[in-house]
């Protein structure tokens, strides 16, 4: 491969790496050693041209890559916004789903409400029936005792009356205790409120930090009414559980 073939004949043809590697420049005349100046200069010109062209192409490509990269990055950050049509379609679909769910919930609400109403009505009736049966039984029992056995006729009758009387007394005492308790507490609470108000007037600064404490009031702890059978039991348990607690009545 010689420059003659490629250099002169095809001036426009671009240089390849092989061209450079295989270049064989003609010798100069016998008188001057080395390559022919003309051929060497021409080849260097072609090399310079090629380098310049490559640089330009590289810059161009770099620009293109950057533009494409920006485009890709932009697409990721802000995707093509959905069209109004798409938004409308999805919104309608969502509304349809919402209305189905709402309907289902409403249906279940009606069903359970109906069931509950029925349940409560039946319960009420059952309780009423039970109440009627109990009072009928009590009446019958009363008739039997009063009709069958004249009062104070025998020991058991007397025993029953005593029990009745005792019950009455217990009820009275309980009511009395309750009343006392309520009054005492009302008095104490009012006293407390008074003390607090007075204290607040005398030294407002002291009020929030040191509110007046109840001086271990002598007030019974309430016993729920249906607990009467376990009254004594309860008292001991209460005081055992809280030795510092108030005494009863």
């Amino acid at each position: 491969m010689t420059v003659d073939q490629h250099g002169r004949g095809h001036a426009e043809r671009r240089l390849s790496p092989a061209d450079v590697r295989n270049v064989s420049l003609p010798r100069a005349t016998m008188l001057r050693p080395g390559y022919s100046d003309v051929e060497a200069d021409r080849f260097l010109d072609r090399l310079a041209d090629e380098l310049a062209r490559l640089h330009a192409e590289k810059a161009e490509l770099r620009d293109e890559v950057r533009a494409l990269q920006e485009q890709v990055a932009g697409a990721a950050a802000a995707p093509e916004p959905p069209s109004d049509q798409a938004v409308r379609i999805l919104a309608t679909a969502q509304q349809t789903a919402d209305s189905y769910v709402a309907e289902a919930e409403d249906f279940s609400r009606q069903m359970t409400a109906d069931a509950r109403a029925q349940y409560e009505e039946q319960l009420r009736q059952a309780r009423e029936n039970a109440g009627a049966i109990i009072s009928a039984a009590q009446e019958a029992a009363a008739r039997l005792t009063s009709g069958g056995r004249p009062p104070a006729a025998d020991a058991s009758g007397a025993g029953e009356r005593t029990a009745e009387e005792l019950e009455e007394q217990v009820a009275y005492l309980r009511a009395f205790g309750q009343a006392c308790r309520t009054q005492l507490r009302a008095y104490l609470e009012a006293l407390l409120a008074d003390v607090e108000a007075e204290w607040g007037r005398a030294d407002p600064g002291a009020l929030p930090t040191a509110p007046p404490r109840t001086p271990a009031p002598n007030v019974a702890r309430e016993v729920s009414r249906d607990d009467s059978a376990a009254d004594d039991d309860q008292r001991t348990r209460t005081s055992a559980a809280a030795p510092e607690a108030r005494t009863r009545r």
């Binding site: 995707p79 916004p81 959905p82 798409a86 938004v87 409308r88 999805l90 919104a91 969502q94 509304q95 789903a97 919402d98 769910v101 709402a102």
Partner: peptide, 22 residues
């Protein structure tokens, strides 16, 4: 309605964070 439809279309992965009925 528009807001959520827009959000779910642009970022479908967010839909699973919400209940069926919106």
């Amino acid at each position: 309605l528009y807001f959520y439809a827009h959000l779910f279309l642009s970022h479908p992965e967010t839909r699973t964070m919400f209940p069926v009925s919106m």
